[in-house]
């Protein structure tokens, strides 16, 4: 493949996913400079490994896996602890006595605000599944966790999201009713 055609293949396959990849990095890092660094490093690595990418497979999942692995290496290099411990996950999961129905009228702000209030490990799997549209198997590979853990985190995460949304909706309704 010539230089120009290799670049064109990369451009056509990878660049359409940059916007969503950046949004994921921004959400995870909560810092624009960190997100820009992470996305740039991800795409540089993707360019170097592009000959390993199988056309016709899920390119967004491939890029997300590279991003997650790089992020995990960077956190390890900076001696940052894992985002949430298993004990915290358990504690959150056990607080779910009642899962309310999904409220009818939700704004973008309600949904993103509620997502931000649940623990990071749950946010991550929900974003990879519902926004990045990755399969359970792809998520397991990106996060380096068993597929059963992906499923249980998704289940618990969605329940927590609904609890958070229920609280948000109730609080909004209460505010509206106040004189």
């Amino acid at each position: 493949m010539s230089d120009e055609s290799a670049w064109r293949a990369f451009e056509a396959e990878v660049l359409p996913h940059v916007d969503r990849l950046f949004r994921l990095a921004m959400w995870l890092e909560r810092d624009r400079a960190e997100a820009e660094d992470l996305v740039q490093e991800t795409l540089t690595q993707a360019l170097q490994s592009f000959h390993r990418f199988t056309p016709g497979t899920n390119c967004r999942a491939w890029l997300t896996t590279i991003l997650q692995h790089l992020r995990s290496n960077r956190r390890r290099a900076r001696n940052r602890a894992p985002v949430e411990s298993a004990a915290i996950e358990e504690r959150f999961a056990q607080t779910l006595a009642f899962v309310p129905p999904v409220p009818d009228h939700l704004t973008d702000e309600d949904v993103l605000g509620a997502l931000r209030r649940i623990p990071d490990t749950y946010q991550q799997v929900i974003l990879l599944c519902d926004v990045q549209e990755m399969t359970y198997k792809e998520i397991a590979s990106a996060l380096n966790i068993p597929i059963g853990t992906v499923m249980s985190r998704l289940h618990r995460g969605r329940e927590l999201l609904r609890v958070a949304l229920g609280g948000r909706a109730a609080s909004a309704a209460h505010t509206r009713e106040m004189p």
Binding site: R23, M26, E36, L112
Partner: peptide
Amino acid sequence: ARLQSAFVSAVDLAP
């Protein structure tokens, strides 16, 4: 659907 649309249209997350 709401989560996906909120995420891809959030101005503060955009590059």
